[in-house]
Design a protein around this nucleic acid. Structure first.
Length: 320
DNA sequence: CGTCCACGTCTAC
DNA sequence: TAGACCTGGACGG
């Protein structure tokens, strides 16, 4: 499942499926999982979810006892517990009956009904992880989708950092600054602005404002408010028409969220909408190359652009 | 049968 | 800056 949009859709899924549902007992981990046990037990508790960038937080909240004076049973939680999940390459949540447990269900929450149902964290490859009593991972930046203002400020005020020495396509995967961007989003975002993937991040980002003046229909800045010009005219024009790179880091993922469904997941039936939405990643006629970390970067070569890399064409069979 | 590839981190040399 | 960590689908022989 898992870039920012899929993590957020997962949190919406949990909140929708678990609304009004009462869970009970302890939290079960699969035999094979190496993630920590979740030391939480309650006769009756609820589950809610939130997302931030590429993480999801579940909150387990014990329900108040009918008899307030009665002491909480030994071993029973009386305080909420947060569990923070990262999804690796294949994590997602599923809510099923007990006899429909998905394969690779590695953490399970059981409802109080009979027959009971189960909220599962499913993760085929087990690159995902969870942390009981967890918090948002320190060092990950603000969410590209839901903390847009601080996301922008964090990038613009740290452009001198070595992270921005990297090519823009690699910097976009740095979760300290782009929490929620992954491999398909970086391709789609750079494609929209026709930015060559291996130009230096700093050269693309310098000159951007920490405030997005395009947002909220604010008037475009005074033409001459900025002195140093010339090369910036083109950039400013792009910004007026479709937003700058940082704005697209916000709006492109939100397009996927607004599609609903499950976002990126070729195994699912409703993958076709998402596939149709992709303009670059894995698209016929686009080029791909390994970046410095061995990740496949998808991009197009614009007419007249110099061929800087040893590229190969990777045509895709359109299933439709 | 085999090899390659996949939405991401991690830690160890 | 390699690998390590995993399963499984696609595709080649």
């Amino acid at each position: 499942m898992p870039e920012g949009p899929e993590l957020h859709l997962a949190s919406l899924y949990v909140n929708k499926m678990c609304e009004g549902v009462v869970f009970t007992g302890s939290v079960q981990k699969s035999e094979v999982s190496k993630s920590p046990d979740v030391p939480f037990t309650s006769d009756a508790y609820r589950i809610t979810a939130a997302s931030r960038g590429k993480e999801v937080k579940l909150t387990l909240t014990p329900m108040k006892s009918d008899e307030p004076k009665k002491r909480v049973k030994a071993g029973q939680a009386d305080q909420p517990m947060d569990i923070v999940f990262r999804f690796g390459m294949s994590g997602f949540f599923r809510f099923t009956s007990e006899d429909q447990l998905p394969k690779h269900s590695h953490l399970r929450f059981y409802t109080k009904e009979k027959p009971c149902r189960v909220l599962s964290f499913v993760d085929v490859r087990r690159f995902g992880s969870w942390q009981p009593n967890g918090a948002w991972q320190p060092g990950r930046g603000p969410c590209i989708m839901f903390e847009y203002k601080s996301f922008r400020e964090n990038v613009v005020s740290n452009l001198s950092n070595h992270a921005f020495d990297r090519p823009i396509c690699e910097a976009l995967l740095n979760q300290k600054y782009f929490n929620g961007i992954g491999n398909y989003l970086r391709a789609e975002i750079l494609f929209r602005l026709d930015i060559p993937p291996f130009v230096s991040a700093r050269s693309v980002l310098e000159g951007l404002d920490s405030d997005d003046f395009c947002e909220n229909e604010k008037p475009v800045k005074q033409e001459n408010a900025d002195k140093k010009k010339s090369g910036r005219a083109k950039q400013k024009k792009v910004k007026e028409e479709s937003g700058d790179l940082l704005r697209l880091c916000h709006t492109v993922p939100l397009e996927v969220v607004n599609q609903g469904g499950k976002g990126y997941d070729p195994e699912k039936q409703d993958y076709s909408d998402f596939e149709a939405w992709l303009q670059c990643y894995y698209v016929e006629g686009m080029k791909s190359i390994r970046d410095h970390n061995g990740r496949t970067m998808w991009f197009k070569v614009s007419p007249g652009q110099p061929i800087l890399y040893d590229m190969q064409s990777h045509p895709r069979q359109k299933t439709e």
